[in-house]
Amino acid sequence: MNSLLDVKKLKVGFEGAKPVNVISEVSFSIQKGENLALVGESGCGKSIIAHAILRLLAPEARIEGSILFKGRELLKLSEKEMAKLRGNELAIIFQNASHALNPVYSIGRQLAEPLRIHQKSGKTDATKKVLKALAQLGFSSPEKYLKFYPSWGSGGMNQRFLIASSTILEPELLIADEPSKGLDPARIKEVERELWVLGKEAKSSLLLISHDLGFVRRLADKIAVLYSGEIVELAKTSVFFKQPRHPYSQGLLGSLPENGFVPIPGLAPALCESPSGCRFHPRCPFQKEKCLREHPELKAREERAVRCFLWA
C-alpha cells in the first residue's frame, strides 16, 4: 500500500561557521486519512521536520534522505513545482498565528488567497468560500471579518483565521504545528473539532505537532516521540498510552497532571550538542554502562518501534 507521505532517513543540518546536525535519520509514514502526532519537548526538532517537509527551511539548511508525497520525491522538486503543492495539497498551520498573518491585509483577502493562487477563483466565488470557512470555525457572523485585520483580534481568533486559511483548499496532508498553543480550553475544543471534521469529511491526513498530550491522544492514530532530533518511540496511540516503552515516553506521560505531575529530571539537550551513546542517558533512570557508549537503534517489535537497549 502506498503511503500518502513517506519520510525515510531524513537528516537535517545547518551550514555555518560550525555546521550542526539537528535531525538524524527520522523515518515515518502517514497513510491516507491517518493522523500522526510528533511529540516531544520544545527544541527537539519537531518544527524543523515540519518545515523540511514543505521545504520552508532557510537556504543554509542541508536536507538529506527522502520525503515521498504521493510517490513524488519532494526533495527533488523545483521551487516552482513545490509552490504548486504548498497550500494546495500540502498545507501547514504555523505556531505563531498572529505573526503568520500579514498585518496590513484584511482577513477576507488573506483567506481568499489560496483560492486565488491555486484555483484562480473569482472574487465573489472566493468570498463565498471564505464565509463558509469562517462559519465552520465558529465565527457567528462571518461577514464582519472580511474587512477585519489581524491586529484587531486576539491570539485565539488569529489562530482560527490561520486554520481557516490553511484548510480552505482541503489539503490532502495538513501539518499542524502546535495548533492548540496559547488557546483556552474552549477554543482548543473548537480547533480539535475542526481538525477532526477535516479528517473525516475531506479525508485529509494530519501531521500533528504538539506537546499537549491530551490533544494528541484524541486526534492522532499514531504517535512518534522525538528526542534530540531522533525518533525514540513510534506506536499506535492506543498502544502508546496504555504502556509507553521508552523511558523518555514514560517520563512524558508521568509528567502529565493526571499521572502525578512528575517532571523528567534534567534539561533537554540543545540540538547542536547531542550526548554520546543513547542521547537520553543523562536523564534516564535506567541507564547502564552500555548506554553511555553505544547508540541504540530503533527496533520494531509488536506494533511499535523503540530506541532503547531495554527493549532489545
Binding site: L56, A83, K84, L85, R86, G87, F94, A100, N102, P103
Partner: peptide
C-alpha cells in the same frame, strides 16, 4: 513569519 506563511500558501 508572514512572508514564510505566504510561501507556505503557494506563492
Amino acid at each position: 513569519l508572514y512572508a514564510l506563511y505566504a510561501r507556505a500558501k503557494g506563492l
